[in-house]
Structure formats: structure tokens, C-alpha cells
Design a protein around this nucleic acid. Structure first.
Length: 416
DNA sequence: TCTGGGGTCCTAGGACCC
DNA sequence: TCTGGGGTCCTAGGACCC
């Protein structure tokens, strides 16, 4: 049996842990640049605030209902996530961290699954203040279904188990097709137009039709919903095949110097992610684009792939390559909204070149030292090419503190 | 005025090879 | 009028996830 444990309204719940006055009040958390709504408390959902809505479109509701709004605080959420995951890992034999707020659990060999499930949920809540729900079923996709029921109905007390044919069928009949893991908007629309409205209807289609129209991916979902497990636990995360860092700018950027600072910063971040993975870049892509929502302005988007002569994870080199790319695609006269760097070709070893003028041993020591310092004091060391970021930094006007990771921002409790 | 970011997988079609 | 066949590799685009 598989379990799926999922933090309820995770980002909003994180904010609440450190601000209990928000309990029972509507809360939303915004994406980078305070762009769109990406997390909502139950109270905000009840007010009809939709996922992905641009913030400017809900400002009136925010005022009217006194919704508490936060910029995303990924340092806080990341730390809370690892606290949740480590508690789960202590309780169960095997866990697969699937996303910042979800993990799968392997319940194989456990006798009292329900009892253990209840225990995990209680412990996480007690240890972190984050409410979680747990779905348990014979396949991962069914565990996802069970999880939705655990969240939706109080009677389950946050743990729902699908462990019989009757329960499976009942659950699928009550699940809309679009709510199935792996069925996105496109497929849902298409299926509904053919009269397939529930997950159960979907399982009644012929395997051949599903295979033909939805590829092997759809076929896998079809099997999983019918109780045949096709997606296994993956305890160690597979190495990344692509590493990407990109951001929209707080305001539009016109001049090359600011753009180049941003690209250098993204390239340096990519390099540090590479080193964390113990990997090297053989090539990378740089892209820049204008604001697609501003139809009144001239549009331009361009990317370029730069080959690295020697595969590398050295920040100086990767920044150099990225800036070479930027130089080739930059066009004067546009207002840019976003830039990014993608490491497109990742290798696990650095192939030495005969005519290499870089002292790689020395550079490696430099990078190790830099990572160590930045690990302790976030962002303490950077390259001159990265600049100050003043002109293009993220907009995050409603940021909470890094309560759990920064001594200067730790909570102060006063006793009367 | 204001619309996120970082990933994965699959397929079709083109280029190229023998 | 007639224009091989089979294989591999790469890429762009689509679909999906959180």
C-alpha cells in the first residue's frame, strides 16, 4: 500500500504557524513579484479566490474581506518543508519526497496501516504546526484520490484509506475526471466532451482507446486507477536532467548592463545548483523576453545555446559563457521583463581538454570555499558581474520574516 | 500600473546514415 | 508517370505536475 501525505494549504499554513492571529482568517500567498495567487487558506477558497489569479484583480476583495496577503517566502517554506519531511521519515519505513509539500509513503509490511497513518499525521501537526492529510491505497494514483477525500471530509480525521473494491469504485465515482493526478485541463476537456466526467467513467474506457489517444502516460493512469500499480517508490531523487534559473524583473529593464547583471546572477545560481548535484554543464541556454501582456509594446524573445568548451561547474566560467550568449541575442530598444539561464546538457564528469587555460584545481578550491561561506551566510559572496540587483530585483512587498532560519529574524515572545 | 518558476515525459517530424 | 527502406538522433511542441 502507498500513502500520500500532503500539507494542507502549505504556504498559507506556514505563515499561520508564525502568526496565529491569522487562524480562522483568510490568507493568500503570492508568486514571485507579487504576481499571482499561489496558495490560499480554506477561508480564502470559500471567498472564491481562485488559484493563479493575478493579485491586482483581487485587490478589492482583499480590502473588503480583510484578507492577509503575503509575498512568497521560500526560505521559510523550504525550511518548514524539511521539518515536516524529517518527522514523516522518522515514523515510516520508506518515504519519497515528491514536492515541497507532499511525500509518498511505502506501507509495505505494516500491519496496522490506519494506526500508523493517524500517528504520522498527529506527529507532524504537533511537531511543526502544519496540518497534513494522508491518503492510502494500493497505487500512487489512488492514494492521491484518497488524499482528496481525507482533506474534504472531516469525518475521516485527515486519513482516508481505499482498501476494498467497493471503496475504490465509490471513490472514483465521486472524483471528477479533471481532479485525477496526471489528467490536466486539455485531457479533461476532451474526455468530458465525450461524456467521461468521472474517474470511474475513465476506467470504463477501453485500454486501446486510452493508449491511442493519451499515449502510455494515459494508459498508466488508467491502470493505476483500476488498482494495478505502475508507478513505484523513488527514494533517491534522480539527478536533474536540466537546471534552470529565471525570474521576471520587478520592473521592466531597458539597458544592457542591468540585463547582464541579472543573467550573471541566474548563471551563478545555476552553477551552484550544479555543484550541489556534483555535475557539470556541457552547454547552456540564455534567454531574454519582453512582457507578453503589454501588447502595446514591441515584442522580442530570443534564446541561444552556448557550448562549454570544457564541461564545467565553475561559476566564473558559466557566467562568462552566459554573458557571451546574452551579447549575441541582446537587441537595443526593447523593454525586457524576464531573463533566464538553463543548463541544457548536464554530465557527471568533466572531460579535460588539451588546450585548457584554466587552473581547475585552484578554481575548484575557490568554489568550495565560496559555497561554504554562502551556505552559512546566504548571498555573502558573489561575482562582480552580478552587480547589486537594485534595478531588477523581485518585487516582494509583503514578505514575512525568515523566522526559522535567520537569527536576526527569529520570533520574540514576551511574557506579561 | 499590476499576470510565477522549475521541472518531467512523450511524440512527431526532420536530418542524416547506410 | 515513375522517386527505397530502415534505423538513429535531435528538437520543438504539447501535456502535465507542484
Amino acid at each position: 500500500m502507498f500513502g500520500l501525505i500532503d500539507c494542507n494549504n502549505f504556504y498559507a499554513s506556514c505563515e499561520r504557524v508564525f502568526n496565529p492571529a491569522l487562524n480562522g482568517k483568510p490568507v493568500v500567498v503570492l508568486s514571485n513579484n507579487d504576481g499571482c495567487v499561489i496558495a490560499r487558506s480554506n477561508e480564502s477558497k470559500a471567498l472564491g479566490i481562485k488559484m493563479g489569479t493575478p493579485y491586482y484583480q483581487i485587490k478589492q476583495e482583499v480590502e473588503r474581506h480583510g484578507i492577509a496577503v503575503f509575498s512568497s517566502n521560500y526560505v521559510l517554506y523550504g525550511d518548514m518543508s524539511s521539518r515536516v519531511m524529517s518527522i514523516v521519515a522518522e515514523c515510516v519505513p520508506e518515504i519519497e519526497v515528491y514536492s515541497i509539500d507532499e511525500s509518498f509513503i511505502n506501507f509495505e509490511g505494516i500491519e496496522d496501516i490506519a494506526g500508523l497513518g493517524q500517528m504520522v499525521v498527529k506527529r507532524v501537526c504537533k511537531g511543526t504546526g502544519i496540518p497534513v492529510s494522508l491518503g492510502i491505497a494500493p497505487t500512487k494514483t489512488l492514494a492521491k484520490v484518497a488524499n482528496k477525500f481525507a482533506k474534504k471530509y472531516e469525518a475521516y480525521q485527515r486519513v482516508c484509506i481505499i482498501d476494498s473494491e467497493e471503496k475504490r469504485i465509490k471513490a472514483l465515482q465521486l472524483t471528477e475526471i479533471g481532479d485525477v493526478w496526471g489528467i490536466g485541463r486539455r485531457h479533461a476537456k476532451r474526455l468530458m466532451s465525450q461524456g467521461v466526467t468521472t474517474a470511474y467513467d475513465f476506467t470504463q474506457l477501453s485500454q486501446a482507446w486510452v493508449r491511442k489517444n493519451m499515449t502510455v502516460v494515459g494508459e498508466r493512469i488508467w491502470k493505476e486507477l483500476r488498482g494495478i500499480s505502475c508507478i513505484d517508490m523513488e527514494s533517491a531523487p534522480p539527478p536533474r536532467k536540466q537546471i534552470c534559473t529565471s525570474r521576471s524583473f520587478g520592473k521592466m529593464i531597458v539597458d544592457y548592463d542591468n540585463l547582464s547583471e541579472a543573467v550573471a546572477t541566474h548563471a551563478a545560481t545555476c552553477a551552484s545548483k550544479l555543484r550541489q548535484q556534483g555535475a557539470y554543464a556541457a552547454s547552456l541556454m540564455v534567454f531574454i523576453l519582453t512582457n507578453r501582456f503589454r501588447e502595446d509594446l514591441p515584442q522580442y524573445h530570443k534564446s541561444i545555446i552556448v557550448k562549454c568548451p570544457t564541461a564545467t561547474c565553475d561559476s566564473l566560467e558559466i557566467v562568462k559563457h552566459a554573458l557571451m550568449g546574452l551579447k549575441q541575442i541582446y537587441m537595443d530598444g526593447y523593454s525586457y521583463k524576464k531573463a533566464g539561464v538553463v543548463i541544457t546538457e548536464i554530465t557527471s564528469c568533466a572531460q579535460m581538454q588539451l588546450f585548457d587555460d584554466v587552473d581547475r584545481d585552484k578554481r575548484e578550491r575557490l568554489m568550495t570555499a565560496m559555497d561554504r561561506i554562502n551556505g552559512k551566510y546566504t548571498g555573502a559572496l558573489k561575482l562582480a558581474a552580478q552587480g547589486s540587483g537594485k534595478e531588477w530585483q523581485l518585487k516582494r512587498d509583503m514578505l514575512s520574516q525568515r523566522f526559522s532560519t535567520n537569527l536576526n529574524e527569529i520570533m520574540i515572545v514576551r511574557c506579561k
